[in-house]
Amino acid sequence: MMILLISVITIFIIILLALGIAMSPAMVFILTGIIPYVVFVILLAGFAHRIITWGRTPVPFRIPTTCGQEKSLPWIKANPVENPAGALGVIARMVQEIFLFRSLFRNTDVKIIGGRPVYDGAKWLWFFGLLFHVSLLIIVLRHLRFFTEPVIPCVGMLSALDGFLEIGVPALYLSDVALLAGFTFLFLRRVIIPQLRYISLFTDYFALLLIAGVAVTGLLMRHFFPADLNALKTLTMSWITFAPVVPEGIGVLFSMHLCFVFFLIAWLPFSKLAHAGGIFMSPMRNMANNNRSLRHVNPWNAPVKVHTYAEYEDEFRDKMKAVGLPVEKE
C-alpha cells in the first residue's frame, strides 16, 4: 500500500508541475518548444540502447519454452507452432505472441471445489490485457491526425470506425472506453488480489497511473473542456517542421496531458514498458526448438585439452603391436 501511495503522490507531483508550467510563459516555452525534442531523443537513444544491451547479453543455452509435441519421427504428429522446429514456426509463434498474447491465454487458476483442487483457464487477464494494448495502439494511431497534413485517409477511417456509435458530440470513441475498462481491471487486480499486491512494485502502479492520467486528461479535453484543436494542431505540426510555434498560453488540461505524455515517453525505455521491444528479444519465445536436430556449442565453453583415441594409438602403436594388442590403423 505504501508503494501505491508513493506512485499516486508522484502522479500528483506531475499534475502540480503541469499547473505550474501553465502559469508561466517561460515554462510553456520550455514545455512546448524544447522538451518534445529532448523526449524524442531520449526515446530513440534509450530504446536503441536497451535493445542493443539485450542483443549483447549472451544466451549460452538453447532455451525455448515449448507447449506441444516436438518434431520427431515421421509418424509422431508434431506441433510446428507451439514447438517450432524452424524459422517459419518461430515467426508464427511470435506473431501469435505479439498480436494475440498467446502465453497469457494459457493462464490457469486453481480453486478448491469440494475439497479437491480444480484447475481451470483464467482468461480475464488475457482479455483485458489485449483490450488495453489494442486500444492504446488505436489511440496512438488516431493521434496521427495531429501530425500529418493532409490527414492520412486511413486515420480518418479508423476514427470514424472507432466512433461509429456516434454517442454525443464529439463522438465517444470505443477505444477510449476500452482503455479505461482495461486500466480499471489491471489496476484493481493489483490492488485487490493480496498476492499481486505483495509482488507489485512502484513501476507497476506508476505505469498504469501514468497511462490513466494521459487518457483522463485527453478525454476531458475532448468531451468536457474542449481544447482549441486548431491551435493544438498548429503546435504539433510546427514540431515536425522543427520550427516550434509556441502558443502564448496553454490550457491547464493540455499542459497536464503533455506532461504525462512526455514523462511516459521519456520513462518508457528505462521501465517495464520496454517490454514493447523486449517481447521480440525473449529467448524463450524467439528460438527454434532444434536442440536435438542440431548441435549447439556453448560459446562460453573453455577450451578443453583432449587426447583422442586416434592420437593415443598414433603415440603407442609400436608398443601396442609389440604386446599383441589390436590396433585400428596399421
Partner: peptide
C-alpha cells in the same frame, strides 16, 4: 516513430 517527419517532408503547413 519518425513517420510524421518524413511524411510531411519538412513542408510547413500554415493553419487554416
Amino acid at each position: 516513430i519518425t513517420f510524421p517527419f518524413w511524411y510531411g517532408k519538412g513542408r510547413s503547413m500554415p493553419p487554416p
